[in-house]
Design a protein around this nucleic acid. Structure first.
Length: 857
RNA sequence: GCGGGUGUGGCGGAACUGGUAGACGCGCCGGACUCAAAAUCCGGUUCUGGCGACAGAGUGUCGGUUCGAUCCCGACCACCCGUACCA
């Protein structure tokens, strides 16, 4: 260094300096100010696993870009950060390493905050919260009690995975091939009484409101719509023959009553009361036991081999008293959907057909493609309900009908004859929130032998987790804690026991966005703050949360409106949603002597044109680029990247290489290139700041000015449209234009200041440096966003491609706005066109002014 | 299994949602500067054939609609996300 004056781009010096300047100016502190329009930017908060990864860098860089852009546009921006801090990994750490979950979690939070701060994010850290703070979960308990009082909570039975050796409930993730992940014992399905949020009562509203979420991705709305799954169908009772007392009828629900003539069997879920009533039979008991060994997930149920047990019971077909159908217990019938019992129509349902083939049941065609002689054989005929088909055995209506019309006709026909009634049902089930785990928000109720279930007194909140739980045995530490559950009944004062279940961690993340508007309040929210800051104007996170987290949040916002914690306008808490892609990396492996892959970290691998090797020359196999994960070691530590290149390079790279909603592959070459570009920008600003004032070139000045204003227009549009990769392409062009322009130093400095403004949301530290070198006043982070001058954007002439038979053969330059006749005349003189026509007249001439010409010969 | 998505040069991607396929970046090739190297700068780069003007092919596969299709329609293939106790 010569006398401390930098002569090259040194991110390590620049970045801390500007972060300090921003902090000193208090730029990111959000204060309620009704005189200014607000903008609330939120990224899905992280789970404090211990280290941030590139996926976090990408997520928070995108949010930061938007927050800084909106601030420059004059908005009062709220951009907070917190920690989704409850969950299983902390308990696993306690079991494996003996560290208390709270200690592990807060240590991780400290580490991740320390990694995040050097990124220079425009976050209001004064609002930071963690869901495991008693200050947070105590308010969550208050919300729960309000919801209980408002009738939004209920108790009922639910099926869980039970590990019979560890005597504990397992998450789906903890079940590997049907066995407990620690005990290795075959897992059983078991019913427990659990707490539920009554989200299914709101199914209709949650469905309808999706239509108004104009700034949500269509795919997310479709996924939610399908998940809620409204269906119109017929519910009716079969009369049974040979069933136990109390089961004289069997209630079924079907969305295809128009296929009733194709019925060949009835089936009930293994959890259905009728199945239970038969359990005295050893064969039934054995079959049910087999069913209980299946997983609880829908995927397990649907992909498992379809099996049934013929109960010997018969039901009478509702249209024909002489026609009896066998009743099976079948492993693929869900107790949670409909009535837990169905009738099977093999011809028009693939599952039913597989089942019918297996148990040699008849296959009766009800409809077929119009005019077709084809009948169902290997595959069921299941056309969309909107398609017209020919009914061979209609329940009611015409021969040619759509499925929809046939269903309506069949329902009307059945209702008129007293066979059941048309009902609307939803696939959406109530939200079971009970977890038999320690590291979660305690459910604030008490079980009293005299009074039953009693809500805890508000004054006793928060019901805190104990800090002396033990993790040496499997099961819920709260349940076996010597004193924690022992309490007195809030109603009668007698001895009682606390609820030892804690809440699903999805509860924690269903209202944190509201808490950020008043994170230290003694109530869950403060109405003035919520009214000002809500809704979240831009929410950003992964597509993996498209259904559960977002649906639960939509439910919670409604519940908080009902219980007086949010204003009416906040029932849809996220005005705009953006789902970003993952950060992936190639995987590297060497081979162990037994041939198994040994995963290698990117930092161990030397990459060249030939392939990849370890430092000692061992050849390395290059695998496909996948989501960065610890198990495959294909992770790049943000700390290393920041230490080597600086935060701006990391930010620039994760924004530049792929569209934000797609996966981006991290490559060392890409990071290198990003850094080279930033160094070039710095150099350009440095050289220009030292250039002589006298250098003038009037024509070059104007060209550069026009290029600058095109960049303002394009970058602004690209940011608004979440096309950050395109915005960056335009910024590369502007940088190139400044570098090459035969323009004077003042004009170049003007262009550089605009470049600084346009890059400030992406590379905020470098932007400050460039801004300062180019003579900008104050901080660029506090400067207003530039506006493009329309007069500098108009183009005098356009180049029209000329196609012959749809293939480009020539181009002509014409004044912008030329009419079709003018263009036509020019085109017919073009040598390429003359050659193609070969003296003949064109068969057709398509002229789209300012766009294209197509000559058809 | 079911629901949703993605697929374009050697690579990441762009194309105003029917109008010049390949912007911008990486990589590669050539050149300048240098004793040399690094850094930097300039030029080229979809593939095939041709010295060349040019011709042909080309957006996962197969088929269709259109003056014109990466874009619309039908059938399929591969991969990714979710599937209610991973977060």
């Amino acid at each position: 260094m010569n006398g401390g004056v930098m002569s090259r781009y040194e991110a390590g010096r620049i970045e801390p300096k500007w972060q300090e300047a921003w902090a000193e100016a208090g730029l990111f502190r959000a204060e309620r100010d009704p005189s200014r329009p607000k903008f609330y930017v939120l990224e899905m908060f992280p789970y404090p696993s211990g280290r941030i990864h590139m996926g976090h860098v990408r997520n928070y860089t995108m949010g930061d870009l938007f927050a800084r852009y909106k601030a420059a546009k004059g908005f009062n921006v709220l951009h907070p950060m917190g920690w989704d801090a409850f969950g299983m990994p902390a308990e696993n750490a306690a079991i494996e390493k003996g560290v208390p979950p709270a200690e592990w979690t807060y240590h991780n939070i400290d580490a991740m905050r320390a990694q995040m701060k050097p990124l220079g994010l425009s976050i209001d850290w004064s609002r930071e919260l963690a869901t495991c703070d008693p200050e947070y979960y105590g308010q969550q308990q208050a919300l729960f009690l309000d919801m209980l009082e408002a009738g939004l909570v209920t108790r009922k039975a639910a099926v869980v995975n039970w590990d019979p050796v560890d005597m504990t409930v397992l998450a789906n993730e903890q079940v590997i091939d049907g066995k407990g992940w620690r005990s290795g014992a075959p897992v059983e399905r078991r019913e427990l009484t659990q707490w539920f949020f009554r989200i299914s009562d709101m199914a209709e509203e949650l469905l309808e409101a999706l239509d108004h979420l104009a700034h949500w991705p269509e795919k997310v709305r479709i996924m939610q719509r399908n998940w809620i799954g409204r269906s119109r169908g017929l519910q009716f009772a079969f009369a049974t023959r040979g069933a136990p007392a109390g089961h004289e009828t069997l209630e079924v629900y079907t969305t295809r009553p128009d296929t009733l003539w194709g019925a060949s069997f009835a089936a009930v879920s293994p959890e259905h009361p009728l199945a239970r009533a038969l359990e005295g039979d050893p064969e039934v008991a054995a079959f049910l036991a087999e069913c209980r060994r299946m997983g609880t997930s829908e995927e397990d149920l649907e992909t498992a081999e379809k099996k049934g047990y013929d109960t010997g019971i018969r039901v009478v077909h509702p249209f024909d008293p002489a026609w009896e159908l066998p009743v099976y217990i079948a492993n693929f019938i869900l107790m949670d959907y409909g009535t837990g019992a169905i009738f099977g129509c093999p011809a028009h349902d693939q599952r039913d057909l597989d089942f019918a083939r297996k148990y040699r049941l008849p296959v009766i065609d009800v409809f077929a493609p119009p005019g077709s002689e084809a009948r169902v054989a290997a595959e069921a005929y299941v056309p969309p309900k909107t398609e017209t088909v020919e009914f061979l055995r209609p329940v009611a209506g015409e021969r040619l009908m759509t499925g929809e019309a046939a269903v309506d006709a069949a329902i009307a026909f059945c209702e008129a004859r007293g066979i059941g009634r048309g009902v609307t049902r939803f696939r959406l089930r109530d939200w079971g929130l009970s977890r038999q785990r320690f590291w979660g928000c305690p459910i604030p109720v008490v079980h009293c032998p005299a009074c039953g279930i009693v809500p805890e007194k508000r004054g006793n909140l928060p019901v805190r987790l104990p800090d002396d739980a033990t993790f040496d045995k499997p099961g819920n530490p709260l349940e076996r804690h010597p004193t924690w559950a022992t309490t007195t009944c809030p109603a009668c004062g007698g001895p009682a026991r606390r609820e030892t279940d804690t809440m699903d961690t999805f509860v924690d993340s269903s209202w944190y966005y509201a808490r950020f508007t008043a994170p230290r309040a003694a109530t869950p929210t403060v109405m003035e703050d919520a009214a000002y800051w809500m809704n979240v104007d831009q929410y950003i996170g992964g597509i993996e949360h498209a259904i559960l987290h977002l649906l639960y949040s939509r439910f919670f916002a409604r519940a908080m409106r009902i219980t007086g914690h949010l204003p009416e306008k906040a029932i849809e808490p996220f005005d705009a949603l953006f789902t970003q892609g993952m950060v992936t990396h190639e995987t590297y492996a060497t081979r162990a002597p037994d041939g198994r892959p040994v995963w290698r970290e990117p930092s161990e691998v030397v990459r060249d044109a030939e392939g990849a090797r370890l430092a000692d020359g061992t050849p390395v196999e290059i695998g496909p680029s996948t989501k960065m994960s610890k198990s495959k070691k294909n992770v790049v530590d943000p700390d290393d990247i920041i230490a080597r290149y600086g935060a701006d390079t990391a930010r620039w790279f994760v924004l530049s290489d792929s569209p934000p909603d797609r996966d981006v592959e991290w490559t060392a070459a890409g990071a290198e290139a990003a850094h080279r570009h930033l160094a070039r920008v710095w150099r350009l600003a440095h050289e220009t700041s030292e250039a002589a004032e006298a250098a003038e070139a009037a024509g070059g000045d104007q060209t550069l000015l026009r290029a600058t204003h095109r960049a303002i227009r394009d970058v602004t549009a690209d940011i608004e449209g979440f096309a950050f990769n395109k915005a960056i392409a335009r910024l590369y062009e502007l940088t190139g234009a400044i570098g090459k322009a035969p323009a004077g130093a003042p004009a170049r400095r003007t262009a550089l200041r605009t470049l600084a403004q346009l890059t400030a949301p992406m590379t905020p530290h470098l932007a400050e440096e460039v801004w300062a070198m180019a003579g900008g006043a104050g901080l660029v982070a506090a400067a207003r966003w530039p506006e493009a001058d329309p007069a500098l954007l108009v183009e005098a002439s356009v180049t029209l491609p000329v196609q012959v038979n749809g293939k480009r053969r020539a181009e002509i330059a014409v004044p912008a706005g030329s009419d079709a006749a003018t263009i036509e005349a020019l085109v017919l003189q073009d040598p390429a066109v003359v050659r193609a026509l070969n003296g003949a007249a064109p068969r057709r001439l398509v002229v789209v002014p300012d766009r294209i010409v197509n000559v058809v010969v």
